[in-house]
Design a protein around this nucleic acid. Structure first.
Lengths: 209, 209
DNA sequence: GTCTATACACTGATAGAC
DNA sequence: GTCTATCAGTGTATAGAC
């Protein structure tokens, strides 16, 4: 692979990412991707034979961005409270960098849930690692020490991730209803949520004093 | 409007709802809607002149379904804990009845955020009613009585709604990662969340004892 | 109101020159 | 590797008969 080819390929992927994430698989146009990449439509098909294949590539890159972090933090050497704090901080930063990926992923998955089958095999080895069992063990041990209340790890993780992602994917609705569509106010709202969500979760799980 | 016309119009809307929610605006085909409605493609254009207009109608109906409940419960005569419990119970039941609407709404809003402008005017009068201010007053009053910790109403509502909706819109991801794609296990997971989420929220906001 | 037939535009993909 | 030109298929929308 020459330097030039690499550059073209990257330009295509960047352009495809923009267009697919904005318009979705069905709404995206190969012509628009080609224009944005500064190349010809025929060249798209030279690099990625079909629209489907190009989309799959873009989707997988986007999806993979949000998966390894979960695993990494859950298995790190930290107390539960530290993990909660670190995870929320880390995930909200990631979301700030890529605010359109979650809605894109959710929207496309709604239309075609089986996109995931191939991707899981490459990016998710949760099962082999017993990731959730290991994390549940830590939780149970902190329960016994009287630090936190008993809680199921899958419910906990679902809540934390949901509290981070939901305000991003439902932005236009919440911003419209609660903030009279004031963009700046909503950005401020998102900023203060880092501390708010952390407190909310920790307050909920910590043992009674 | 005759009886027959009413039936055809309803048949079209039902079919359009199914197809649009599954395929999205760009992916939906007028032919498929016509087939599913048991009528002819030309008849679609007779009732709703364009695909856009038909889509707008379907989207508005779907969106409106999830808005009045919020308002209604927030303004009801209940204690905060009762409201939390009632809201979660009510919202999760609604989601169980219409599990595909949230992903549909989120996905389409991602592509075209200005769909909402017209809809807000018809369905949302939060501003005039000072809905959030009224609810915040109740919260503040319960804070002073020592029942709950201080909390911002917009953060609280965002959290509650997010905790309800996220496991629905991210179903294929969570089910795949946490439940090895076992549909029945995930349905059970969703069932137990009614109590879990209620406890999670109330634990978080109630005052220290 | 409902149908058949068709116009017209657009899109993904390929052929072939350089 | 990159371009121009073009094809075949598909999709929305309309015309016109009944």
């Amino acid at each position: 692979m020459t330097e030039q080819e690499k550059n073209t390929e990257e330009k295509i992927l960047d352009a495809a990412k923009d267009v697919f994430q904005k318009k979705g698989m069905a709404g995206a146009r190969m012509q628009e991707i080609a224009d944005k990449a500064g190349i010809n439509k025929a060249l798209l098909h030279y690099y990625y034979r079909t629209k489907d294949k190009l989309f799959e590539k873009v989707f997988e890159i986007a999806f993979s961005l949000f998966i390894p972090r979960v695993k990494e933090i859950m298995l790190s050497e930290k107390t539960l409270f530290e993990k909660v704090e670190f995870f929320i901080d880390s995930y909200l930063s990631l979301l700030q960098k890529h605010p359109f990926i979650p809605s894109f992923v959710i929207g496309e998955l709604n239309r075609n849930p089986q996109i995931l089958v191939g991707i899981f095999e490459k990016n998710v080895q949760f099962k082999e690692n017993n990731l959730f069992e290991i994390f549940q063990t830590q939780i149970d041990s902190e329960v016994e020490k009287g630090i936190i209340k008993p809680i199921d790890v899958k419910n906990l993780m679902t809540n934390i991730i949901g509290l981070c992602i939901f305000p991003i994917v439902a932005r236009s609705i919440i911003q419209g209803i609660m903030f009279e569509n004031n963009k700046k106010e909503y950005d401020d709202f998102l900023k203060q949520r880092k501390d708010f969500v952390t407190d909310f979760v920790i307050n909920s799980i910590k043992a009674e004093t």
